[in-house]
């Protein structure tokens, strides 16, 4: 089948709240805990989960924007941790990121031209100013903006337009892999649809591979080929989108799908599956399965023993008692 473009093997990221000058207890949060995923070339891979599940950190760790504490990341089979800083810097043109907040992702003190010139200034220092301008104009037209926007500052644009500028910056160096971190979550529905369409057009045109990080399940279902459902730093279930949505094996997946509101009032009286309680604190995880405190199917074993990921009909499920 397709080649694997990006792969993580047992990736771990821990954050520790540092102890103060005169000692004190350092607290450790396992933001990403032993996650292995394979992203095939030219597919859209979605990471889904609620806040604190580590999806954003995993995306950053793949791009080596946060330090990892264990495991490896491979890009085209190459272990990124083995690369020299110089080699990593030049590899960055192949892997890019689009951010959630179109207000924070553009430097307010730079004009659009300077923002979009930065990739070229970093990786093609010899390129002439005129060539850079031409490339910028081309980029702007690719994301559906006029080239005279170059002279403006970010605060002169609406959220949707800024997101297009962010996308243009990510595209500048012809990357192969783009992490879309909640790229449409901050946008209004009608603008969200425009940007989703743009992203899928760009994927076709430039043969991009996306890692799409979101909490919005309907967006996942629309755009993703493969899904990894995360909960408190761990992959709960990985599988093909259609399949996974139609028949979730992991109880968490099932409840997550059921929790999304349905935009159809005739279905409002359907039987509702509701999870009890809150997401446990990532600082002191429950023993055993980390979902066991909320899981209505949890049994004795779930509270004692942490489940390993098992292969099940082409999926990876971390559950002792999957819903087959």
């Amino acid at each position: 089948m397709n080649n694997i473009l990006v792969q993580t093997k047992g990736l771990k990221v821990t954050f520790s709240a540092e102890a103060g000058m005169f000692g004190g207890e350092a607290r450790v949060v396992k933001a990403v805990d032993d996650v292995s995923i394979d992203i095939a070339e030219r597919e859209t891979y979605a990471l889904v989960g609620e806040s604190g599940c580590g999806k954003t950190t995993l995306g950053r760790a793949i791009l080596r924007l946060v330090p990892t504490t264990g495991g490896q990341v491979f890009f085209r089979g190459e272990d990124l941790s083995s690369l020299s800083p110089e080699a990593m810097r030049s590899l960055r043109r192949k892997m890019q990121i689009i951010f959630q907040d179109p207000y924070a992702s553009l430097n307010p003190r730079m004009r659009v031209r300077e923002i979009l010139a930065e990739p070229f200034r970093t990786h093609e220092p010899k390129m002439s100013a005129k060539d850079v301008d031409e490339r910028i104009a081309a980029l702007l037209s690719v994301v559906g903006m006029r080239s005279d926007t170059m002279r403006k500052y970010p605060h002169q644009f609406s959220g949707g337009q800024r997101q297009r500028i962010g996308i243009a910056r990510a595209l500048a160096l012809n990357p192969e892999f783009i992490v879309c971190d909640e790229a449409v979550s901050a946008l209004d529905v009608s603008i969200q649809a425009q940007v989703l369409n743009l992203l899928s057009d760009l994927q076709k045109e430039f043969r991009l591979t996306y890692l799409f990080i979101t909490h919005n399940l309907s967006v996942v279902r629309h755009i993703a080929d493969k899904v990894c459902v995360m909960f408190l730093g761990k992959a709960m279930e990985i599988g093909d989108t259609e399949d996974l949505f139609a028949r979730p094996f992991h109880p968490y997946t099932k409840f997550l799908i059921a929790a999304a509101p349905v935009p159809d009032p005739t279905q409002r009286d359907r039987e509702r599956l509701l999870l009890k309680g809150d997401i446990p604190s990532p600082i002191n995880l429950p023993p055993g399965c980390r979902f066991s405190t909320r899981c209505p199917y949890a049994q004795e074993r779930c509270r004692m023993e942490e489940p390993e990921a098992v292969a099940l009909e082409g999926r990876a499920v971390s559950c002792h008692y999957p819903l087959v």
Binding site: R60, L63, L65, M88, R89, S90, R92, R93, M95, Q96, I97, F99, Q100, D101, A104, S105, L106, N107, E118, P119, T122, H123, G166, R169, L173
Partner: peptide
Amino acid sequence: KEFVEAARALGVKKRT
């Protein structure tokens, strides 16, 4: 801020 992260993702040097 995300724009600083974006610069890091582009491989811009720290001093820059």
